[in-house]
Design a binder for these strands. Structure first.
Lengths: 265, 265
DNA sequence: AAATTAAGTTCCACATAATGGAACAAAATA
DNA sequence: TATTTTGTTCCATTATGTGGAACTTAATTT
């Protein structure tokens, strides 16, 4: 039973691939490399079956087995991801606009898209410091407590939104995290009206952001961009001012998509 | 444990997973998103079979199908990779030492490991500029024309080295790229003696590096660290001087592994 | 607009690959 | 040494993937 709270796995768990992906998820979500027996307990598969499944994953480089018999995520995943990221058109088009926004505000800018009920961050532009790469990029965060997430939700048609909300389990990360679908839905309606969203320290205490929705024409990407920073530097008043440049940048990204990809037939 | 003598566990291309991985490789390696028919030609599978295979990959989020029927790498790969990277012990231990080396030299520092006959870069520390993330990290480069690659090869026992060299095809990226196993082998012997390797513009014209080998005790990670930069700034003389700090940093990383992970049983 | 071709999807008898219980082997622990 | 725990192999059974063909839809040509 897949009990991960992020709900991003709407994939079927039957079929050879499905079962293997559950295992891969299990191992990559673990805090530390797992022993065979640990996985056995978590996966609830017969010993023989599990052993073969893991062997296959190791053979393909999706998992790695160290000298102590501990299974860790395989580095082949990095290679796949690097290409997935480098060639992503949405990200490429957004890139210069993210940089502009970073320059204009001096704060960190994110680009994220909705996948299942998670936001996956596609890019991050920070100011000064030698950034720890991969940090944030690729990370999946809940949609109900991030600026980008709520901006994305405001783009969904009512029925899809309802379906998604029904499947959420609300983990309270801070005192201001939404605790129910009702309050969240109310805020999403508001966001749909005004065209921008805030994160009022809902995911991480002391961190705020303003976000605007972004989408591709074929709706393959539904997500948003945001300016994020520490609460002591980003008053709610300042964030309200920044709603304008964020929305403008979002608009420019979407225009870039139209030009680049041509009109829909 | 995997008891095959050849050491280098190359992925088999049979079995459900194996076939799917071939497809995933195909799509992620393509310069642009592929249509069904393009993949059909490349994969040489029957139409029905291919269609179902692709559907499964899409269902699992490993591929994505846009509105135009083009298949692109799925963003779920990013999520997997982000965790794979963030939790990698080798990388975590090496991190501060890479930063020190970057500080000391002012040039870019890389950490890479050998997987098959490729070097996969696990980390990169640059100076100033807002680094384009993922750039380099996760990328797979040939072992025979990179400093880290040749340093890694110098760690292999003769038989494994011979096997690996036998399987290589030498693409000449620049005028100084090794063109045969013979000259490469000679240099690797030299590297094994002196404990450091150079890249004399062998992968990219105008780019040089010094590298030193690094390995984990259980040999799960065989790789190296390097200082890389433009040839006009990094004379061969300067690189020879830097061989010392690179080797020292490599030593500290390996010491860190011993302390962190404890002595081997 | 109709005809023609190509592209993409579904179906189902068949073959292959995964399953899982049990036996076996190897470490760890008593 | 005996005993338990952990990891690996085996093989009859069965679930799953296979692939040719029929079918549907979209694009191109006449």
């Amino acid at each position: 039973m897949n009990s991960n709270g992020d709900g991003m796995t709407q994939a079927r768990e039957t079929g050879t691939l499905g079962k293997l992906m559950v295992l891969l998820d299990l191992v990559t979500h673990a805090a530390a490399p797992l022993r065979f027996t640990d996985i056995l307990a978590l996966a609830g598969q017969p010993r023989g079956t599990l052993h073969r499944q893991l062997s296959h994953l190791v053979e393909e480089g999706l998992l790695e087995l160290d000298g102590d018999g501990r299974y860790a995520p395989g580095l082949r995943l990095l290679d796949f991801a690097a290409r997935s990221w480098a060639r992503n058109e949405f990200r490429m088009i957004a890139e210069p606009h993210l940089a502009d926004l970073q320059q204009a505000t001096g704060e960190t800018v994110h680009l994220g898209v909705l996948r299942g009920s998670s936001i996956i961050y596609l890019d991050k532009v920070e100011g000064r410091q030698p950034v720890r790469m991969y940090s944030q990029i690729g990370n999946a965060s809940p949609c109900y407590c991030t600026g980008v997430g709520k901006a994305a939700l405001s783009l969904l048609p009512p029925d899809r939104l309802a379906d998604l909300l029904a499947g959420l389990s609300f983990t309270r990360f801070t005192a201001s995290t939404h605790g129910s679908a009702e309050t969240l839905l109310a805020e999403i309606r508001e966001i749909a009206d005004q065209g921008y969203a805030f994160d009022r320290e809902e995911h991480e205490a002391g961190i705020r952001c303003v976000a605007a929705p972004v989408w591709s024409e074929d709706r393959t990407f539904i997500g948003g961009i945001s300016i994020t920073g520490p609460a002591y530097r980003l008053s709610m008043e300042l964030l309200r001012e920044w709603a304008v440049p964020v929305q403008l940048a979002a608009g420019r990204i979407m225009e870039g998509m139209r030009i680049r990809l041509g009109p829909r037939r």
